[in-house]
């Protein structure tokens, strides 16, 4: 018989994506047998994060403060606002180090068939920021899916109403891939949005 504490822990771990009963079992026994200290650290970190992390009041990303570290940084470019779907998108964009402005996280995307409308993605909060802050350009970095495009279009219309220029991240052939293996839609898009070779024209 396995102790109820262990059964409970196995059940609890199964809430993670991709973790089935077998993996959960392995994790539990590993933690108890070889990593007691780390297990305590994991438990306390989880507890702290779950009770303290909320959303940043400015960009809506996850944060344990009212205003997140990035929004608090005065050295970033105030005239730029990048709009992303999820906090992970924001993280990967930050890791590239190419963008120096601020962010707004929608925490989702417009999807009429899933019942997700403008209110659910915090559009009022975004409009408030567009009015109050000296933003000159909004960069739409929503995913290149149909729902992502709908979201981008909707926000672009709102920006137009308040005279703020709006750009969308480019789409097309991924680096290191081959045209032969691309799907026809991506190829069509890449062809439609082909860009001038600046160096060659100089």
């Amino acid at each position: 018989m396995i102790s109820p504490a262990i059964t409970r822990l196995i059940e609890a771990l199964r809430c993670l994506p991709g973790v089935g009963p077998k993996s959960a079992q392995r994790m539990v026994f590993y933690l108890l047998q070889h990593a007691r200290e780390q297990a305590k650290l994991l438990a306390s970190s989880l507890d702290y994060a779950a009770s303290n992390v909320t959303h940043c009041n400015r960009c809506r990303t996850f944060s344990e403060r009212d205003i997140c570290l990035l929004c608090n940084n005065p050295n970033r470019d105030q005239s730029l606002l990048c709009i992303v779907e999820t906090p992970i998108d924001m993280l990967v964009l930050e890791q590239t180090g190419t963008y120096r402005g601020y962010y707004f996280v929608l925490m989702g995307k417009l999807s009429p068939l899933d019942g997700i409308g403008p209110e659910e993605i915090g559009i009022n909060q975004l409009l408030e920021r567009l009015e109050k802050e000296p933003i000159k350009e909004v960069v739409l970095a929503t995913n290149p899916t149909v729902e992502g495009d709908t979201t981008a279009h909707y926000i672009a219309e709102k920006c137009k109403a308040v005279n703020i220029s709006c750009t969308r991240i480019a789409r097309g052939v991924p680096l290191g891939s081959e045209l032969e293996y691309l799907d026809s839609r991506t190829l069509t898009q890449a062809f439609t949005h082909r860009a001038l070779l600046a160096e060659a024209c100089d």
Binding site: P112, D149, H153, S184, R185
Partner: peptide, 26 residues
């Protein structure tokens, strides 16, 4: 597979009208 020569991209209000048709069908 993609149907040949049927690669369409809807933009802007037309995209939203497309969603409207899909909502009705669903």
């Amino acid at each position: 597979e993609a149907q040949q020569k049927m690669s369409y991209t809807l933009v802007g209000r037309r995209l939203i009208s497309g969603f409207y048709a899909n909502e009705l069908l669903m």
